[in-house]
Amino acid sequence: MARYYYTNAIIWALLVIATLFSFEAVSFAYLHQHALTIAMIFACLKAHLIAQYFMELRDAPKPWAIPFNALFIVATLAIAGIDAAAAYF
């Protein structure tokens, strides 16, 4: 169990830091116009950590991690892409 306490504590800390950091990034004036994109990139990283470590997909016998991570990346790219398109056109 000790291994799990250690791993989960680190992942939990990373998730909290990523959450707070994306929150802070949004408050910086010069990052405002990219706030949503930055927040989505952090969301994607957080989702990746949860899928790999909390859901233990990295240990799954079948490559379940691939479709999950693909969805996170598709969501992030689509949201950032539409946001950029909406801002420029």
Binding site: S22, V26, S27, H32, Q33, A35, L36, A39, M40, F42, A43, K46, A47, I50, A51, F54, M55, A75, I79
Partner: peptide, 24 residues
């Protein structure tokens, strides 16, 4: 447990999408 992680995952995307609109 897997279901509970899904609830977490969905929120992680809903949160920036809905709440970080005002920052522009």
């Amino acid at each position: 447990a897997l279901y509970w992680h899904m609830v977490d995952l969905l929120w992680i995307f809903i949160f920036p999408l809905l709440y970080f609109q005002g920052a522009r």
